[in-house]
Design a protein around this nucleic acid. Structure first.
Lengths: 122, 122
DNA sequence: TATACATATGAACAGATAATCATATGTGTA
DNA sequence: TACACATATGATTATCTGTTCATATGTATA
């Protein structure tokens, strides 16, 4: 036992065996379900069309047609993507006459995008 | 001209025609290239295996084998994913003997993950 | 109600991608 | 050098996903 620890000790040079560290990290790791949801969230940000759509709403609410024209996308494509953004609670919307106006759901969305922007612009 | 504007005005009820808003947003929109890079960045966070790997390094550096054992993944899979994380500058690494120790590259990475976590935990 | 405009949605297809398997490279030691 | 351990990588495959096309739903107005 002590021998095994000593061997790990000598190799890693740290104060704990690899096994102990792995176990410690294992305890700190959030539930798989949460990490899965986290990945799903980022996955929504991880498409250039959706990012463009999100960014277009950074300071203004826009209707589907506005977005389609602005980004030179088909109405269908925009609508499909907006559905994904709605489902992920990244955008909210209101109907006014024939049009539906979309906008960012909350400050979190802006914060996440801004944070990513900082990393990209380095 | 005035007539067309008036029609837009009456429909939208706002102080500017939709066209003007679209044009304004168009000017504010970052270059496609930047938004593409931004999406690529989030795409890397958008996989549950990579998120698990990133989270495991939140407070400790770990070698490939540690991660594979911890997350019950094949060595190959971990290595492939670490390559993607390296390419995106999300992790750094150092070699020590036969092992290679990986850790998060900077505080941005932690910040992005934390920000996403807040959204998920709502 | 008939028509036009705006948006949503289902099906199908093409391109992207993560895991696996086999193997190569890199490192320390007998 | 020969061997074992640790990591990296290329090729293949099954799965996932974004766009397109066609069409349906929703809304206002003549």
């Amino acid at each position: 036992m002590a021998e095994e620890y000593g061997a790990e000790e000598a190799r890693s040079g740290s104060g704990a065996a690899r096994e102990d560290i792995v176990e410690k990290v294992s305890r700190q790791q959030p539930d798989d379900e949460i990490l899965y949801d986290l990945a799903e969230l980022f996955k929504v940000f991880g498409d250039s069309t959706r990012i463009k759509i999100l960014y277009s709403m950074f300071e203004n609410e826009l209707c589907v047609n506005d977005i389609a024209k602005l980004l030179n996308l088909s109405q269908s494509s925009v609508s499909h993507q907006l559905r994904i953004l709605k489902t992920s609670k990244l955008v909210k919307f209101r109907r006014e006459g024939k049009s539906v106006y979309y906008s960012l759901d909350d400050e979190h969305v802006r914060a996440i995008i801004s944070m990513g922007m900082e990393h990209v612009e380095e």
